[in-house]
Amino acid sequence: MKYLTLTLTEFRKLRHSRILLLLLLPLVILWLPNVVNADMSLTPVMEGITPEHNFLIQSFMGFAWFIYPACMIVCTVLLQQLERGHKGILKMLALPLSPSALALCKWIVLLALAFFQCALMTGLYFICATVVSRSLNVSLMADTSTVLMLAGDIFLSSLPMLAVYWMLSVCLQTPVFSIAAGLASMVPTVLMINVKIWYLYPPCYPFYIVTQKYGEFCSGSPAEWNFFPWIPAAVIITVICLIISCLRFGQAERR
C-alpha cells in the first residue's frame, strides 16, 4: 500500500468520529466571553497597545495557552482509540504494512487537525471582530496579514509540541494516563517561557509566540527573535519524538 493511499485511509476514518466537532466547540466557548466583553478591549491593560491588537492578542492568548494544546492532547488519544476499537490495530498490523509508516500517517492526520483548528480560530476571529466592531461602532479588526501571520506562527511553532503529545499517546497505552500526562505538561507553560532554557520545553512554544507578539504591539517595534538554539532544539526534539513513536507504535499488540 502506498504511503499516500495509507494517509488518505487514515483521513477517511475521521468521518465516523467526533474529532472535528471537538475542535469547533471549545473555540465557540472561547469566543463567547470575548464577544460579550469586547468593550474591555477599548481600555487595554498594557500601555501602548491599540484596541484592535488587544482584542486579537487576548483572544489568541487563551487559544495558544490552553484550548489548542488541550484539544491536540485529546485528538492524539482519539486517533489511537480509532485503531484500538474493535481490535482495528490488530487488523492493520496483520496487513503488509510497516507500523512506522502507519504511525507517520497518523502524525500527518494530527498535523491536519491542528492546521484545521488554527484555521477555525482565525475564521472565527474575523467573524467576531466584525460583529463587535459594528456593535461598538469602533474598529477592532486587526490587519489581515497580521492575523494570518500570528495564526501561522502558532501552528508552525506547535509542531514539536504535537510530536511530544503523539509520542505520549503511543507510549502510554492507557488513555487516561496519556491525557493526564499531556494536561500536566501544560501547567508550567507560563513559568517556562520566562526561563533561559524555554526552548527545551515544546508545550510552551505557541504561548511564547503570542507573548512575544504582545510585546511587539505594546512597544511598537519588532521583537528580537533568537532562533538559535531554538530552531535546532525544536527540530531535534521533533525528530526524536517521531522516532520513538514509530518504534513503539503497535508494539504492545505485536507481542
Rank of each mutant, 00 (worst) to 15 (best):
Leu32Phe: 10
Leu22Lys: 00
Ser158Arg: 00
Met141Gly: 06
Glu253Trp: 04
Pro51Ile: 02
Tyr165Trp: 15
Leu32Ala: 14
Ala119Pro: 10
Lys2Asp: 11
Cys204Met: 15
Pro203Arg: 08
Phe207Lys: 11
Pro203Lys: 10
Ser139Arg: 02
Gln212His: 09
Arg15Phe: 03
Glu47Ile: 09
Ser100Leu: 01
Ser100Glu: 04
Glu52Lys: 06
Val131Cys: 06
Gly123Met: 05
Ala114Arg: 03
Ser41Ile: 07
Ile231Tyr: 06
Asn194Arg: 09
Leu25Gly: 02
Ser221Leu: 15
Lys196Cys: 03
Leu172Trp: 12
Pro160Phe: 07
Leu111Phe: 10
Met186Trp: 02
Met141Pro: 06
Glu10Gly: 01
Val195Pro: 02
Asn37Ser: 15
Ser245Trp: 00
Leu136Asp: 02
Asn54His: 02
Val36Phe: 15
Ala38Gln: 04
Ala163Cys: 08
Phe177Val: 11
Pro160Lys: 08
Ala114Ile: 04
Thr5Glu: 15
Ser169Gln: 11
Val164Gln: 05
Thr76Asn: 06
Cys75Leu: 02
Lys87Phe: 12
Glu253Thr: 05
Ser133Trp: 03
Leu111Asp: 13
Ser135Val: 14
Leu4Ala: 11
Val74Thr: 07
Ile57Asn: 01
Leu90Tyr: 07
Val176Trp: 08
Ile49Phe: 02
Thr7Asp: 00
Gly220Lys: 07
Met92Asn: 15
Ala233Thr: 13
Thr238Gly: 09
Trp65Asn: 14
Ile67Pro: 03
Ile240Arg: 09
Ile108Met: 11
Phe228Arg: 14
Cys118Gln: 13
Thr50Cys: 10
Leu159Val: 15
Ser185Ala: 07
Thr122Asn: 14
Ile231Trp: 06
Ile193Met: 06
Cys128Ile: 09
Thr146Ile: 01
Ile193Pro: 05
Leu90Val: 07
Met46Trp: 08
Thr43Lys: 12
Val138Leu: 07
Ser158Trp: 00
